[in-house]
Simulated scan of single mutants.
Amino acid sequence: MTEKASINAKLAASGGPAPFQVPQFTFRDYSKFFAAGALCATLTHGAMTPIDVVKTRIQVDPALARHSLLSAGRKIVASEGPSALLTGFGPTAVGYFIQGGGKFAGYEFFKKRFVSIAGDQETAVKYRTAIYLGASSTGEFFADILLTPLEATRIRLVSQRGFATGLIPGFMRLAREEGLRGMYAGFLPIICKQIPYAIGQFTVNELCHEAVFRSLSEEKKKRVRNSPIAMFGVTLGSGIIAGFAAAILSQPADTLLSQINKGHGPEGSMATRLIILARQAGFRGLFAGLGPRMIMTAGLVAGQFLIYDGIKHTLGAPPGIEIHKKTTTS
C-alpha cells in the first residue's frame, strides 16, 4: 500500500494520468454478485423453457426446420401434449443457476482485475472495450465448465423423447453410458456459443449505457440516475439490444451444439465434426431458428439485467466498476 501511494503521489505531482480508484470488493461482495447472477439467470432461463424447447426442436428436427416458433410449438403440443414444452426444465434451472452466478460474479471479478492492470483511469477508459471483451470471455469460460454437463442433459432430454424422466435420471444415464468424455463432448461448441453470447450481452450492454449517458447533459444524467422509472427504461432498452447482439453472435454455435448433443456428425475430433456439420448445414442452416432465438434472448438478457440490478440492490451489493467514456466538454 505504501509503494502504491508513493506511485500515485508521483503521478499526481508530475501531472501524469490519474490513478484509477478501483473498489476493493470482498468475498462477501462477490457472493452477492454470484447470488444475484444465479437467481436472474435461473428465473429467466426457466421461464423461457417452452421457447427454448421449440427453438431446439426447430434446429434438430427436419420436420420442423421451416416452421415458425408459433407453428412449431402448436405441432409439438398437438403430437406430444403441453408438457412437452417443459422438457428439460430441471437441468435448465439448475444449470443456469450455477452458470449465471459464475458468469456475473466472474465478469465483475475479471473486469476489476483488468482495470487494475490498466493502472490509471485514462488507460482503462481508452481500452474499455478490450476490458469488457476480456472480462466477459474469461468469466464465461469458467462458468461453462460448470454448465456443460447440465446443458448436454437438457438437450438430450429435449431432442430424444424418452431419454429420461427428468434431470437426475437424465444426468445419471448420460454419466453412466458416456462418462466424463460424453458429458463434456459439447464443451468446445458450448464455449464457441456462450463466449460470443457473453460478449454480446455484457459488452453491448455497457456500450449502450455509455451511449445513453453521453448523449445527456449533466443535469439530465442526475435526473435519470435518480429516477427508478428512467433507469428501468435504460436497462430494459440496453438489455434488448444486447440480447439481439448475443443471439446473432452465438447462433451458429448454438445450432452446432444442438446437433452434437443429439449425436449428429461424423467420427473424429470435435473440431473436425464441427467443421463438417457447419459445411453440411450451410449459412442458412446455421441460422435456422434465429428469429425465435432473438426474441427469446432479448427477453432473457433484458430480464437478467433488470433482475440482477434489483437483487443486488436488495442484498446491498456495491455497484460494478464503471469505465464509460465521459462526454467531452468544449
Rank of each mutant, 00 (worst) to 15 (best):
R57M: 11
G46D: 07
G46V: 03
Q59L: 09
V60M: 02
V53L: 07
T42R: 05
A18H: 09
K55D: 13
V54F: 06
Q24P: 11
P23T: 00
P23H: 02
T26R: 02
F20I: 15
Q24K: 14
L43H: 05
G46F: 02
Y30W: 03
F33L: 00
Y30D: 08
I58N: 10
F20W: 12
D52F: 12
I51R: 09
P19G: 05
Y30H: 12
H45C: 06
V54E: 12
P23K: 00
R28L: 08
T44Y: 07
A38P: 11
T44W: 05
A41V: 01
A35S: 13
L39D: 04
F27A: 15
L43R: 10
R57L: 09
I58A: 05
C40Y: 06
Q24G: 13
F20T: 08
T56P: 05
K55F: 09
F25A: 11
P23I: 00
A47N: 06
K32E: 10
G46S: 00
R28S: 14
P50M: 02
K55S: 14
L39V: 14
P50S: 07
K32Q: 14
T49I: 01
T42W: 03
T26N: 01
K55H: 13
R57H: 06
A36K: 00
V22T: 10
D29C: 04
V53T: 14
P19F: 02
Q21L: 12
K32V: 07
A36N: 01
F27Y: 10
V53F: 10
G37Q: 01
A35Y: 08
I58R: 10
P17Y: 02
Q21W: 04
I51M: 15
M48P: 07
M48E: 12
A47Q: 03
A47G: 15
P50I: 00
P23V: 02
V22H: 01
K55A: 09
A47M: 10
Y30T: 08
A18S: 13
P17R: 05
A38N: 09
F25R: 03
Q59E: 09
A36R: 03
P50Q: 01
A18N: 06
